[in-house]
């Protein structure tokens, strides 16, 4: 039994010691888990900074993904304090499992066609998305942007030349900025900071995405969660949202 190298026991002890240290967090701060549609990531990152400055000892963690992915995580028991979805369907899915406060509409977002800089395929409107030589990126079914896109295209009677179904809006933007795809339909707020050219969709044909937001009524941090919801729809929150391309509800 003396075949174990001398340092082995010590090595094991050190390993477990490190694991324990790593598992212990800082007890003084309160963490607020905010789940938000990917289109909100920029705006919520700005708000996070502002909110944390006003509320010392609070650490806001903004988790962004497609609203459908987030709803799935909430249904699976993710620790969520606030949920901001890009459409009502996904919010309602999550609200069937978790008792959220009654939602309020945080903001609205119009849709816009994006093309790579220089618009290489000369896209001018929705009808161009049906052309064979225009490769169009969109998201998988159930992602809100896809639902809005389908509704928009159906109303305009256009069958788009989809070549890829991305996991969320950011995926669509990436495929267009890298020139892999020639066009995509995204939210107006996605234009901020993206290296793409917008092709406006006339107001009559356009539709507005609504973003419901609510605090988790079952959360231990529900008071703080409500404060975050109030903050996002307050004066400061709205200013940030508008700077990021959203419109007041």
């Amino acid at each position: 039994m003396n075949t174990v190298p001398k340092g082995a026991g010590r090595l094991v002890a050190i390993t477990f010691g490190l694991l324990l240290v790593g598992a212990c967090g800082d007890d003084d701060t309160v963490t607020l888990n905010v789940m938000a549609a990917s289109s909100l990531s920029g705006a919520f990152a700005d708000m996070e900074t502002a909110f944390e400055n006003e509320n010392p000892g609070v650490d806001v963690v903004v988790i962004t993904a497609s609203s459908s992915a987030l709803a799935g995580q909430i249904i699976d028991g993710a620790d969520v304090d606030v949920f901001a979805s890009a459409d009502e369907t996904q919010f309602d899915r999550a609200a069937e499992v978790v008792r959220f406060d009654p939602p309020r509409v945080l903001a609205t977002n119009a849709l816009v066609i994006i093309v790579p800089p220089g618009n290489p395929r000369a896209v001018t409107g929705l009808s161009d998305l049906a052309r064979d030589d225009v490769l169009v990126a969109t998201a998988t079914e159930d992602v809100p942007i896809r639902k809005y896109t389908d509704r928009l295209l159906e109303a305009a009677d256009v069958e788009a030349n989809f070549v890829t179904f991305e996991a969320n809006v950011s995926g669509i933007v990436t495929k267009v900025t890298t020139g892999s795809a020639d066009a995509g339909i995204v939210y107006l707020s996605d234009l901020v900071g993206a290296d793409v050219e917008p092709i406006e969709i006339p107001t009559d044909d356009n539709l507005l995405a609504r973003y419901p937001i609510a605090a988790n009524g079952e959360s231990r941090r529900v008071e703080l969660a409500r404060r975050w919801v109030d903050f996002t729809s307050g004066e400061e929150g709205l200013a940030i949202l508008e700077a990021r391309g959203f419109a007041a509800p």
């Binding site: 989809f162 070549v163 890829t164 179904f165 991305e166 996991a167 495929k175």
Partner: peptide, 9 residues
């Protein structure tokens, strides 16, 4: 390669 049924999915 992207994500399209039958081609890249």
């Amino acid at each position: 390669a992207g994500n399209y049924p039958g081609t890249t999915r």
